[in-house]
Simulated scan of single mutants.
Amino acid sequence: MIAIIDYGMGNLRSVQKAVQAVGANAEVTSDPATIRGASHVILPGVGAFEDAMAELKRTGLGDAFVEAVRSGKPCMGVCLGLQLLFDVSEEDGEHRGLGLLPGRVVRFAARPGLKVPHMGWNTLRKRRPVPLMEGLGPDPSVYFVHSYHAVAGRAEDVAAEADYPDPFPALVWRENLMACQFHPEKSQAVGLRMYANFAALS
């Protein structure tokens, strides 16, 4: 069973529907015990970094997710769920993240003509092959909605980049931990293939 963590900040049902559409069993849960018992875990998220971390701490769901990662089961972050994996975010001050990946989360730099948030379709540029991108072809396009992006502390953690206009990490991967800055559940066939690839991991 794939556990989708419900800490009050995420498009949970659309993630659940996308996972179910590829034939996997997915349960939205706010129960740490359910997360510990799941075979796979997804940490989604939409909204403010500080509020998300506060809820993850208050509910114990953050600890349960960290335990899931350290136990070796496949774990995936989506959008804000990617940013929460890093050490620190600069959104509205400086706030500690889960510390599972070294790096910082920063706002897109202001530039003439550059709209923030970054919203819409963008092409992934693969940095290295990872199972989540199997079967996607050379230049898959995915859907983004975000004002902040990660600056990874280890270049090898970045599996794919996108440009806005400079490169930023769009997909990170470290052993059994992976995350997308984009929304696979809004990325049509490409996103469904990613969820199918995630569900097939063991």
Rank of each mutant, 00 (worst) to 15 (best):
M194Q: 08
M194V: 12
S71I: 00
P32F: 00
M76P: 08
A152T: 13
A179E: 03
P165S: 11
A170C: 08
W173L: 04
P140T: 07
G103R: 05
R193Q: 15
D157L: 01
I5Y: 04
G191Q: 06
M1E: 13
L124I: 11
G103S: 08
V172Q: 02
R58W: 04
S39P: 03
A199C: 07
R70S: 13
T123F: 06
K126M: 14
A54H: 15
K115V: 14
R128Y: 08
R107S: 07
G47E: 07
P74R: 09
L82F: 11
N197W: 02
D51E: 15
R128K: 15
G191Y: 05
L177P: 10
R111T: 04
E161P: 03
E161K: 02
E134I: 00
V106S: 07
H118M: 12
V28M: 12
F49E: 01
E55Q: 15
A150Q: 12
V142M: 10
I35G: 10
L124W: 07
S89F: 06
A54Q: 15
G191K: 01
K115Q: 15
P32D: 01
E50G: 06
D139A: 13
V69G: 07
G113E: 11
N25P: 02
P184K: 08
Q83R: 10
D139R: 14
R111M: 14
H149D: 10
M1F: 07
G97N: 06
V69K: 06
L98F: 05
K126R: 15
Y143C: 08
A21Y: 11
Y148M: 09
N122M: 08
Q16G: 05
L201V: 06
L12T: 08
S202F: 07
D87P: 00
F86R: 09
I5T: 04
A150G: 14
D92T: 03
P117S: 11
I35F: 04
R154P: 01
A64G: 10
S202C: 12
R104S: 14
S14E: 09
